[in-house]
Amino acid sequence: MFVYEKKLQYPVNIKQTNPKLAKIIITQYGGPDGELGASLRYLSQRFTMPLPELKGTLTDIGTEELGHLEMIGAIVYQLTKGLTEKEIKESGFEDYFVDHTTGIYPQGASGTPFTAAYLQSKGDAITDLHEDMAAEQKARSTYDNILRFCDDYDVKDAIRFLREREVVHYQRFGENLRLLTDKLDEKNFYAFNPEFDKKCFKNCMKKK
């Protein structure tokens, strides 16, 4: 059960509209390495994690990613609030505007709608944690790319906060991976999952 706190994790107070920048930043709302995919990935993977510490980390980070999704939504909303027709045309925002007006829609910077194909939940703790670490680095890279095109201090301030959190999440997942491999018999784990594969093997042999 989640408890909603009625404030953003980090303040977003943008004074100047910039629809061109909004079209780029929307990718962290519903793009391939965005916050929506991150939250769904972690909150799905947590169920099959074998250790309570791992379940806790994925729940905490998955919940925080929902807060980051809210921040990105607020940034895009403030960058596009009260746009004039002239601003829409001059910024190249008309293709987004035609489909969504200034509503917040989960898509990438290219305009591709969000898809669950962006994430994976494998049920193998080592596999999932490696994916999570890669996902955090891809999100960090995306924020780096956004900052290259951003000259608004108010936007950069919020984006830098989000970028820093991706680095922290990467570190937490790395710690979890070390904890996991310390507690598992790595050789047997990589050869087969003794709680699952042995049963499958026996059932297959019976059928033959």
Rank of each mutant, 00 (worst) to 15 (best):
L66E: 06
I26V: 15
K15H: 12
G31N: 06
T57L: 04
M133K: 09
A109R: 00
Q107P: 03
Y105S: 03
D144I: 14
T57R: 09
T127A: 09
L40P: 01
Q9L: 13
T63C: 09
Q28L: 11
D185E: 13
K187I: 14
P11C: 08
D124T: 10
Q171C: 01
D152S: 12
I24V: 13
E70F: 00
L40G: 01
L36N: 04
L162E: 00
D152A: 13
L8Q: 10
D60L: 03
Y29D: 08
D95Q: 12
L54P: 00
K89Y: 12
Y170F: 15
L162M: 13
P32A: 14
E65V: 01
A139I: 05
K156R: 15
Y10D: 03
Q171P: 03
P106M: 12
I14S: 08
H169W: 06
E131Y: 09
D128L: 05
V12A: 05
M205G: 03
P32F: 12
E94C: 06
D99W: 10
L184Q: 05
E175S: 11
F201T: 06
K7V: 04
K23E: 11
A134G: 02
E85F: 04
I159V: 15
F161N: 11
D157N: 14
L36E: 03
Y29C: 13
P52I: 07
E53Y: 10
K208T: 04
E195P: 00
K208N: 04
I61A: 00
D157C: 07
E131P: 00
E136P: 00
N188P: 00
K7G: 01
A139M: 05
Q137M: 11
M49K: 01
I26Y: 03
M133R: 13
K198Y: 14
K202H: 12
I159S: 04
L36T: 09
M49I: 02
G34P: 01
L79R: 06
F173E: 02
Y153I: 11
D60R: 08
E35I: 11
H100Y: 15
E53A: 13
I104L: 13
K86S: 11
Q9E: 11
H68M: 02
C150D: 07
A139Q: 03
T63S: 14
G67L: 11
V98G: 01
H100G: 05
A22L: 09
D154M: 10
S121W: 01
K207R: 11
A38V: 02
I26T: 03
D132P: 00
T57H: 02
H100M: 03
T181H: 07
P50Y: 08
N145Y: 11
K20W: 03
T27R: 04
Q137S: 06
N193L: 13
N193C: 10
I24D: 00
R165Q: 08
E175M: 12
A109D: 03
T48P: 01
F189G: 09
G30S: 06
E94V: 09
D95T: 15
L147M: 11
T142L: 05
E164N: 06
N18F: 06
L36A: 06
R46K: 10
G67H: 09
E136R: 03
Q16D: 13
A191L: 07
I26D: 00
L43W: 15
F114G: 03
Q9W: 07
Y4D: 07
P19E: 05
R172W: 00
G67Y: 10
F93I: 02
T59E: 14
S110F: 05
